[in-house]
């Protein structure tokens, strides 16, 4: 990004000197510039068309639907209901009973997951950074990212289910617990899922932080060592202030990603048997595809996402500020 802004400046200064020194070609140059813009757009437009169509146009399509009673994708009779979908979160007992527990579960998950981004990612990155990047260890630690969310969910079931979970069987055999852990109880699933997701993304988060650490100029680190700073001081005064972009990227990804966690939950039986795995993503999905409450589901999704996206936009701004 730094290189981007400098070359912008270069190009601008070059453009002005050209125009100043050679007036006769000015008209020709602007023609060339116009041609360049058109050509640039020919390169940009194919992907931009798809991106706008599939990511931004859906919002335009969605907006009027929020104010209707559209129940399914092929609902023949759609009529306007004003703001009923928005107020349903507070008036409608069944929606309230669905929405608030799901919101709570999602928030708890997002929080724990964010904690584990640091517990796994940052500590692994620091270990790797201080004592040399070992390719073999990196390869193994990064490997769980090759698993699908679905596989991670089934692994959670395999390891922690009450009667057949490997971890349960092992702990029972060793006599460490007298009663097996119940994956489907609210307490357990609250911790098992963040643990599994943290494990899956450990290598990814590690590499985000590792990249931040590797970008720190080594002379500042050496200077701090020579000056006799202890490790904690080195972390808080040298590493962390220079790793801001990594923290912001990790935060943005962890927040937005964890909010949309879906595949793992499906594997844990969220669509049918396991009410403890009904997070907001599952709620929106079932409202749209199973329960004929499409407009309501979309409204809930919008209402929940707006604050989240606001936070995300602030983080994006912050990131640009840090980078420039």
């Amino acid at each position: 990004m730094v290189s981007g802004s400098t070359s912008t400046r270069n190009a601008r200064s070059m453009g002005t000197t050209k125009a100043e020194t050679d007036d006769s070609t000015a008209g020709k140059a602007s023609g060339l510039a116009r041609r360049r813009i058109i050509e640039d757009w020919m390169f940009i437009s194919p992907q931009l068309f798809l991106f706008v169509l599939l990511t931004l146009v859906p919002f335009i399509v969605a907006f009027p639907i929020l104010f209707t009673d559209m129940s399914g994708f092929n609902d023949p009779q759609v009529s306007g209901v004003g703001f009923d979908n928005f107020t349903a979160i507070f008036d409608n007992a069944s929606v309230r009973a669905d929405y608030f527990p799901a919101l709570k579960r999602t928030l708890v998950f997002v929080g724990l997951n964010y904690l584990l981004v640091y517990v796994f990612g940052l500590s692994l990155a620091l270990l790797m950074f201080e004592f040399g990047v070992r390719k073999a260890l990196f390869t193994v630690i990064y490997m769980p990212l090759m698993l699908s969310g679905l596989a991670v969910g089934y692994l959670a079931v395999m390891l922690f289910s009450q009667e057949t979970g490997n971890v349960n069987l092992l702990l029972m055999d060793l006599g460490l617990i007298s009663k097996p852990i119940d994956l489907y109880s609210s307490g357990t699933s609250r911790f098992v899922l963040p643990l599994m997701v943290g494990w899956r993304y450990a290598g990814f988060n590690m590499s985000i932080f590792l990249v931040g650490l590797l970008a720190i100029p080594t002379d500042t680190i050496e200077a701090s060592i020579v000056d006799g700073a202890n490790y904690w001081q080195r972390l808080t005064r040298i590493y962390f202030p220079q790793m801001w972009p990594s923290f912001i990227i990790a935060t943005t990804m962890a927040l937005i990603g964890a909010f949309s966690v879906f595949d793992e939950l499906v594997a844990m039986g969220a669509l049918y048997v396991n009410p403890e795995a009904k997070f907001l993503s599952i709620l929106f999905f079932t409202y749209g595809f199973q329960l004929d409450r499409l407009a309501l589901g979309m409204t809930l999704a919008v209402v929940t996402s707006v604050p989240l996206m606001a936070v995300g936009l602030v983080l994006l701004r912050l990131q640009r500020k840090v980078q420039y």
């Binding site: 599939l54 990511t55 859906p58 919002f59 399509v61 969605a62 639907i65 943005t252 990804m253 937005i256 909010f259 949309s260 879906f262 907001l280 993503s281 929106f284 999905f285 749209g288 499409l294 589901g297 979309m298 999704a301 919008v302 996402s305 989240l308 996206m309 995300g312 936009l313 983080l315 994006l316």
Partner: peptide, 12 residues
Amino acid sequence: MVIPAMLVLLPQ
């Protein structure tokens, strides 16, 4: 980066 996947799913 800031648009949650679950928000786009139904309108998409």
